[in-house]
Amino acid sequence: MTFSESVDLAVNGTLMRGLELNPNLLNVGATFVRETTTAPIYRLWSIGDRHPAMLRVTTGGRAIALEIWSVPVTGVCQILQQEPPGLSIGKVILADDAVVLGVLGEPFLCEHQLEITEWGGWRVYTQAIALPQDI
């Protein structure tokens, strides 16, 4: 068994490129790898329109857009400590069946929040709500 100096991390919200918490990745030396989606077994909630929370489910799931980042192992803990309460690191199954570490929400966090699974991702949702509404 060999020790890797970095680990792939799937992010689905404000850690993504150009968003509010992306500097948390950059500050630990993480590098962007690629855009992809999860396997269609996740649902997504907007937590007060501040950040999303993604949960793995047994029914009603969909593929959720995310980014994969290569993160130095020593930086993973620092990133997690800077995440909003109720978010954690767990295993995420990607569309190609690869399993990577990723940011997930705890179920309590999603209670009484707006489900945004139909949008397929945080970036699409936030762009959609920023659009002017037809009157």
Results as ranks from 00 to 15, higher is better:
residue 1 M to P: 14
residue 2 T to Q: 12
residue 2 T to D: 10
residue 3 F to M: 13
residue 3 F to S: 10
residue 3 F to D: 11
residue 4 S to D: 13
residue 5 E to W: 11
residue 7 V to W: 03
residue 8 D to C: 12
residue 8 D to H: 14
residue 11 V to P: 02
residue 11 V to Q: 02
residue 12 N to E: 06
residue 13 G to R: 00
residue 13 G to T: 03
residue 13 G to F: 00
residue 13 G to V: 01
residue 14 T to N: 04
residue 16 M to G: 01
residue 16 M to F: 01
residue 17 R to E: 05
residue 20 E to I: 06
residue 21 L to A: 10
residue 22 N to F: 07
residue 22 N to H: 15
residue 22 N to E: 12
residue 23 P to N: 05
residue 24 N to T: 13
residue 27 N to D: 15
residue 29 G to P: 08
residue 29 G to N: 09
residue 31 T to A: 05
residue 32 F to Q: 02
residue 35 E to P: 00
residue 36 T to S: 04
residue 37 T to F: 10
residue 37 T to R: 12
residue 37 T to N: 06
residue 38 T to I: 08
residue 40 P to S: 07
residue 40 P to M: 06
residue 41 I to G: 03
residue 42 Y to P: 08
residue 42 Y to W: 10
residue 43 R to W: 07
residue 44 L to W: 07
residue 46 S to Q: 02
residue 47 I to C: 02
residue 47 I to A: 01
residue 48 G to W: 00
residue 50 R to N: 06
residue 50 R to I: 07
residue 51 H to A: 01
residue 51 H to Y: 15
residue 52 P to D: 00
residue 54 M to R: 00
residue 54 M to H: 01
residue 55 L to I: 12
residue 56 R to S: 08
residue 57 V to A: 04
residue 58 T to V: 12
residue 59 T to L: 07
residue 61 G to Y: 01
residue 61 G to L: 03
residue 63 A to P: 02
residue 63 A to D: 03
residue 65 A to D: 13
residue 66 L to T: 01
residue 67 E to P: 01
residue 68 I to F: 04
residue 68 I to C: 03
residue 69 W to A: 01
residue 69 W to I: 02
residue 71 V to A: 05
residue 71 V to C: 09
residue 72 P to N: 03
residue 72 P to I: 10
residue 73 V to C: 11
residue 76 V to P: 08
residue 77 C to I: 13
residue 77 C to Q: 14
residue 77 C to H: 13
residue 79 I to G: 09
residue 80 L to F: 15
residue 80 L to V: 15
residue 80 L to A: 15
residue 81 Q to F: 15
residue 82 Q to S: 15
residue 83 E to F: 09
residue 85 P to H: 12
residue 86 G to L: 08
residue 86 G to D: 08
residue 86 G to H: 05
residue 87 L to S: 04
residue 87 L to P: 05
residue 88 S to M: 13
residue 91 K to L: 15
residue 91 K to M: 13
residue 93 I to F: 04
residue 93 I to G: 02
residue 96 D to S: 11
residue 96 D to N: 15
residue 97 D to V: 03
residue 100 V to M: 09
residue 100 V to Y: 05
residue 100 V to G: 09
residue 101 L to R: 10
residue 102 G to N: 08
residue 103 V to Y: 11
residue 104 L to D: 06
residue 104 L to W: 07
residue 104 L to R: 11
residue 105 G to D: 07
residue 106 E to T: 09
residue 106 E to G: 01
residue 107 P to I: 12
residue 108 F to N: 13
residue 108 F to L: 15
residue 108 F to D: 15
residue 110 C to L: 13
residue 111 E to Y: 08
residue 111 E to A: 12
residue 112 H to V: 02
residue 113 Q to D: 05
residue 114 L to V: 14
residue 114 L to S: 11
residue 115 E to V: 07
residue 116 I to Y: 03
residue 117 T to L: 07
residue 117 T to Y: 06
residue 119 W to Q: 00
residue 119 W to Y: 15
residue 119 W to V: 00
residue 120 G to Q: 03
residue 122 W to G: 02
residue 123 R to V: 13
residue 123 R to Q: 10
residue 123 R to C: 09
residue 125 Y to E: 00
residue 125 Y to K: 01
residue 125 Y to S: 00
residue 126 T to L: 07
residue 128 A to E: 06
residue 129 I to T: 04
residue 130 A to I: 03
residue 131 L to Y: 01
residue 131 L to Q: 14
residue 131 L to H: 02
residue 131 L to T: 06
residue 132 P to L: 04
residue 132 P to D: 00
residue 133 Q to G: 02
residue 134 D to Q: 14
residue 135 I to L: 14
residue 135 I to M: 11
residue 135 I to N: 12
